[in-house]
Simulated scan of single mutants.
Amino acid sequence: MGWLQRLFGFGKPADAQTNPAPTEDGIAPERVGLNGEYDQSGLAKRVALAFDEDPSLDDINNLWVAQTGGTVVLKGSVPSQDVLDKMVSIAGGISGATSVNTDEVKVG
């Protein structure tokens, strides 16, 4: 099961992008959805999409993605620090992400 399906209950929509251009003026970068529409959880969904696009992250089932404003919040557990570092790098590269909080992630 993919990240979008597990976390948000749906698969990848057609034309979904990790960094789409907003479809309307004035949408804050962290509120841009998968297709450029306004989405309250847009940043978290785009991070989940980016995780879906990396096959090496398919087996991570105990981690959740949320957002507080422009901060991506990761919660749960990962098997290694290398995996967490990769996820932080991916999440931090999504437009609208100002930081990545891993305070609630257990490694090992």
Rank of each mutant, 00 (worst) to 15 (best):
W3K: 01
W3R: 02
W3I: 02
L4E: 01
L4D: 02
L4I: 06
L4T: 02
Q5F: 01
R6H: 05
R6P: 04
L7S: 00
F8V: 00
F8C: 00
G9T: 03
F10A: 05
F10I: 03
G11A: 13
G11P: 09
G11Q: 10
K12L: 01
K12Y: 00
P13R: 10
D15W: 08
D15H: 11
A16S: 11
T18N: 08
T18L: 06
T18K: 06
T18S: 13
N19F: 07
N19I: 08
N19T: 14
A21E: 12
A21H: 05
A21Y: 05
P22L: 10
T23R: 14
E24K: 15
E24V: 13
D25I: 13
D25Q: 15
I27M: 11
P29V: 08
R31L: 14
V32P: 00
N35G: 13
G36S: 09
Y38N: 00
S41E: 13
S41T: 11
G42H: 00
L43I: 09
L43R: 04
A44V: 04
V47E: 04
A48R: 03
L49V: 03
L49M: 09
A50V: 04
E53A: 10
S56N: 14
D58E: 15
D59N: 15
I60L: 13
I60N: 07
N61C: 05
N61F: 12
W64L: 13
V65T: 03
V65N: 02
A66T: 09
A66V: 05
T68F: 12
T68M: 13
G69P: 06
G69C: 07
T71K: 12
V72Y: 01
V72D: 03
L74D: 00
G76V: 07
G76L: 10
S77H: 07
S77I: 04
P79H: 08
P79Q: 09
P79T: 08
P79S: 09
